[in-house]
Design a protein around this nucleic acid. Structure first.
Lengths: 262, 262
DNA sequence: GAGTGGTCTAGACCACTGT
DNA sequence: CAGTGGTCTAGACCACTCC
């Protein structure tokens, strides 16, 4: 401790936490901080980049440094799975009205823009183990991007894997032109006689890769939530393995665990 | 784009991803990189600090820079709640054997070291809203640290809030000297006639604060998972609000959602 | 053009690690 | 002590934003 840049960063951090510098406020210019601290430009910049990595400030080139505002978080509720299951056997008309994402966000379907792309692949060793199938088993790999119509960045990156032999009975399921599919994956599986029993979701967090930063338009000082979702059918087979990347500053996951009564 | 430090970082990142530099391997020394790149020392250092923030490398002062190894993750399974509820009415002897944490990690109770500290506080505006009670309502604030006996850093930071008037009927519940309490919070609540109906867990992620980095002994380039756990009793009252901070590189949360049959 | 942040250098000096 | 990374400077020059 007590390096020059840590002192400068610590002073500013204290002022931000005390509310003296409120979210949205402009920090003193770097030139000012150089004068006040008596340290060099690069040292002041280092202090500021520490605060940026902590997610406390946002640097805007040519404008100034600002206290970062908390972003409103989109909720992703695990009741979405039961909700989607309930609708999987409804009529097309009803299913067309809204999907699970709209259910979470409370938005109309027109507020969302949706991209999907399918590809046939073979199971890697890692995926084969999760599916409990031999390496090289044909899979259908599906990638999705969903974003608000009003924004440019998607709010998640999704890669889903289905077992090819389980879904090839319905040729419509192999063509990404049919996305967005009314009723979602659970309805798609229903068309080939698959009913889900449970969904496992494994959650962890890490700093974003440069590619994720790019695609999700993340600011420096943001983490990503990484979610692996595994769907089991009523015969206890793994039918879908999805990897989902979510921006940590814009996402909140909600899981409700109901307990049996005494 | 295509700045000097980005090029150097990009080259090393590519070599790491290709496996040419495997986890645990030592990177070329900074002096070597200066020669190879023809750039200055600080520029090379900047490239390396980018990779550090991404969690790709680990800097060891006086030794070298190394490709970071993935850490083994402790699993936190939401079935722990039902498991804890089932044990809440068992005998003391049985409850003493293991707690929910041991259940998750598969460890013996002697492998864990446990700290707890209680304090009486008043509800802030934010907590009051979650509890659905007036601001200033007396609460029992409990902070916990749990760590492996073999390690120095705790694997989580927990702050739990109970409504004081709900638990003061049993004086033992107000004294942190009684921790670790066999059977955990659900048994504690059982002693004052409270049965839980469900648990809501809200999960998000962000970079750690300096204090969290310190307490959890996090390396630069690590995120934290922030979990707010809200416990509802069978009368639909909020009885516990806990905030839990977990290291992103050592933790995996597992949530299983069971679906109703058609 | 004035103001602000971003990149980069060349080199000094300090601190930690292992022999 | 040699090797390696960490901090810091003084100043040059570039890039973006706003007026």
């Amino acid at each position: 401790m007590a390096t020059a840049y840590e002192k400068i960063a610590g002073g500013l951090r204290a002022r931000i936490r005390a509310g003296e510098l409120a979210p949205g406020d402009k920090l003193p210019s770097e030139a000012t901080l150089v004068k006040e601290s008596g340290k060099s430009g690069p040292t002041v910049q280092r202090a500021l980049s520490v605060l940026q990595e902590e997610g406390l400030i946002e640097k805007r080139h040519g404008i100034g440094n600002f206290v970062r505002k908390p972003r409103t978080k989109a909720l992703r509720d695990n009741c979405r799975h039961q909700w989607e299951k309930d609708r999987a056997r409804e009529s097309v008309e009803l299913r067309k009205q809204t999907g699970a994402t709209e259910h979470d966000t409370g938005l109309e379907i027109d507020d969302l823009v949706f991209y999907a792309s399918y590809r046939k692949t073979k199971a890697t060793a890692e995926l084969a183990e999760v599916f409990g199938l031999p390496e090289g088993t044909p899979l259908l790999k599906r990638t999705y991007r969903t974003r608000y119509a009003a924004e440019t960045a998607p709010f998640n990156l999704v890669t889903s894997h289905l077992v090819h032999s389980m879904v090839e009975g319905n040729a419509d399921l192999l063509d990404d032109a049919n996305e967005p599919w009314p009723g979602g994956t659970q309805n798609q599986l229903h068309t080939v006689g698959i009913e889900l029993d449970r969904i496992e979701e494994r959650v962890t967090a890490r700093p974003p890769t440069p590619e994720e930063t790019e695609e999700l338009e993340l600011l420096p000082g943001t983490s990503v939530i990484v979610l692996r979702k595994i769907s089991y059918d009523i015969k206890d087979r793994v039918v879908d393995v999805s990897d989902i990347t979510l921006p940590g500053d814009r996402t909140e996951l909600l899981f409700t665990t109901r307990l049996e009564r005494w």
